[in-house]
Nucleic acid binder design. Structure first.
Length: 551
RNA sequence: AGGGUUAUCGCCAAGUGGUAAGGCAACGGGUUCUGACCCCGUCAUUCGUAGGUUCGAAUCCUACUAACCCUGCCA
């Protein structure tokens, strides 16, 4: 459900329902099947569906396929899957091209009413006649053709008598309008192109500005939501509704675009990233596409809560990426199991633990959610801990991890105390020697003394090697959205890190999600050969430790 | 001869004449077998600017300023 915070569109709908302007709500999501959906589309989807749901209404999915030269069924299928993944079911799934006959009839009607004419102007000439922002346009010399001639010519356009681009059908509105969209806009063009749905039936295709309001009307859409840059098109939208003698009177409402820091949403740049193989595809976890975000570990609920929380206004806004992360953390918090992982291993030898012996400790899958059960985790003489969890000398009182002479708890296992530090010739710490206290086993109720902290670990012989793909920072910086786009991309900001995860994860499946100790969230990605697991780090640490912590 | 839209905390955002909600981020403190989570506290005398109307204005009026969109046979 839409959250409690109201938004202006919800208010409009509520008012119209109350004063009888409409008696139900039917929205639509109208993607053009020429690209993969990204988080920006998710907002349109979520808003349309949730808004309709607020008033017991429904939402149609309609592929806006009026320009076959750019579109493909590959995208149709991908879009359907994404919407389903987000958890929405359209009332109907349709294609704009299903209405081509009806749309054609409306064009003929316009001609009969003297409101449309066939134009012979070339594309360049048309641009010149259109005028500019600062000067009015001039009427086409073909503007005053008779209705009979227009009817005949339009019929000939349809039957394929003319080549692509040779003629257009234009609405006859106002060449002097300060709104350029009203200067006799082209409503049909000739394109001898195969259409992925209608095949070769048509060689003329309606323009968006003509087709869209009609399709909305044909489907009985009550509210046609779109982004703010279409505001200038609304008078044309209304003109079409007014003059085409349609039953329904859909209303176009615009909202501001949503940007997210560090994410590129432009179709063109996304395509460039894929084409130039900077990413592995539209489903690369670095991409802002829904398929990409899915592999990055995002859940539909996280995305929905994020979208709903950012609200809706007419402002083009840019939300901080941290907000998206927040909603993922919140969503995953109680849903995921929380195993241990070591990204940067430091070997630990428990000198008073018998060689070759392994014992298992019970570990809750999620300390905050008992229903997720428990699993067993190995403990033995040789372990790995995170390198950053150890400093030879305790730097200050804020240090809550392991140091020489200091005792910490290995989570869900024992207290260990560091006695010796082994270094290589260059002085790098290569392993540390500790002793454990058998009395301190987790769950034993031991309460004699407090450890200096709790750190995570994996047992060396049972741990599974894993590769972590880290985003540090995100690949796409907002600064990259400039002309030197290509140069500013930083492909190295994705880095692989070899590490270990506990053996419990050996049965992991793609798309499984985990929260690891230290609050990094990961999702498994494609599993590679052998035992090696691949994880995408989806959300960074909420706050990372530095020795200056606490100052 | 220009038209359209927007302007409330670092980022989103409520508010529609009755005296500035909320979320994210940040910062203090507490708690914790995750420095996470959680809990407590702090964070706009002020709503782009300048005037005006009013007992009272973020809300109404006037003028200005800034930002974004519009000159595809794309959507």
């Amino acid at each position: 459900m839409m959250n409690d915070s109201s938004n202006f569109i919800k208010t409009i709908m509520k008012n119209e329902l109350e004063n009888g302007t409409v008696d139900h709500i039917l929205t639509r999501f109208p993607p053009e099947p020429n690209a993969y959906l990204h988080i920006g589309h998710a907002r349109a989807i979520i808003t349309n569906f949730e808004l309709a749901k607020c008033f017991q209404g429904a939402t149609n999915l309609r592929f806006d396929d009026t320009n076959p030269s750019k579109e493909d069924t590959e995208y149709v299928e991908a879009i359907k899957k994404d919407i389903e993944w987000l958890g929405y079911t359209p009332k109907t799934i349709n294609y704009g091209s299903n209405y081509f006959d009806a749309t054609y009839e409306k064009a003929v009607l316009l001609i009969q009413k003297g409101l449309a004419f066939v134009d012979d102007l070339s594309q360049e000439e048309l641009a010149m006649y259109r005028g500019s922002i600062n000067e009015p346009g001039k009427p086409s010399p073909y503007r005053n053709r008779s209705i009979a001639e227009n009817l005949k010519l339009f019929e000939e356009m349809k039957s394929g008598k003319y080549g692509s681009g040779e003629k257009t059908l234009r609405a006859k509105i106002d060449m002097a309008s300060p709104n350029i969209n009203m200067r006799d806009p082209v409503i049909y063009r000739i394109m001898h192109v195969h259409h992925h749905q209608t095949k070769d039936k048509w060689c003329i295709y309606p323009m968006y500005d003509f087709a869209h309001p009609l399709q909305d009307a044909f489907e009985g859409i009550t509210h046609s939501l779109c982004s703010i840059e279409f505001e200038d098109h609304r008078p044309l939208y209304e003109w079409v509704i007014e003059h085409c003698e349609v039953e329904a009177k859909p209303r176009q409402i615009e909202w501001g675009r949503l940007g997210i820091t560090h994410m590129i949403m432009s179709k063109r740049y996304l395509k460039q990233l894929v084409d130039e193989k900077i990413v592995t595809g539209y489903d690369d976890p670095r991409m802002p596409t829904l398929v990409g975000l899915r592999r990055r570990g995002f859940t539909p609920d996280a995305i929905r809560n994020f979208i709903l929380s950012t609200g809706l206004s007419k402002i083009n806004s840019t939300v901080d990426y941290g907000m998206l992360e927040h909603f993922l953390r919140e969503d995953l918090k109680l849903k995921t199991t929380r195993p241990m992982a070591i990204l940067d291993p430091l070997k630990v030898v428990i000198t008073n633990y018998p060689e070759g012996q392994i014992e298992y400790v019970d570990v809750p899958n999620n300390m905050e959610n008992d229903s997720l059960g428990t699993h067993q985790m190995a403990f033995g003489r040789e372990l790995y801990i995170e390198r950053e969890d150890f400093l030879e000398e305790k730097p200050n009182k804020h240090w809550k991890r392991l140091s020489k002479g200091i005792e910490v708890r290995l989570m869900h296992a024992y207290f260990i105390k560091c006695n010796d530090v082994i270094k290589d010739d260059e002085g790098n710490i290569i392993e540390i020697h500790c002793t454990y206290d058998p009395l301190t086993k987790s769950g034993s109720g031991f309460n004699e003394r407090k450890p200096n902290g709790n750190i995570h670990y994996v047992e060396k012989t049972t741990a599974l090697p894993a590769t972590f793909q880290l985003f540090e920072p995100l690949l796409l910086d907002e600064k990259a959205q400039t002309e030197n786009f290509r140069e500013r991309i930083n492909p190295t900001s994705w880095k692989n890190q070899e590490g270990f995860v506990e053996a419990y994860l050996k049965d992991t499946q793609p798309e499984d999600k985990y929260q690891f100790i230290r609050n990094g969230y990961y999702t498994t990605d494609k599993l590679s050969k052998g035992d090696k697991l691949v994880f995408n780090r989806t959300v960074g640490l909420k706050s990372s430790f530095t020795t200056e912590h606490g100052k």
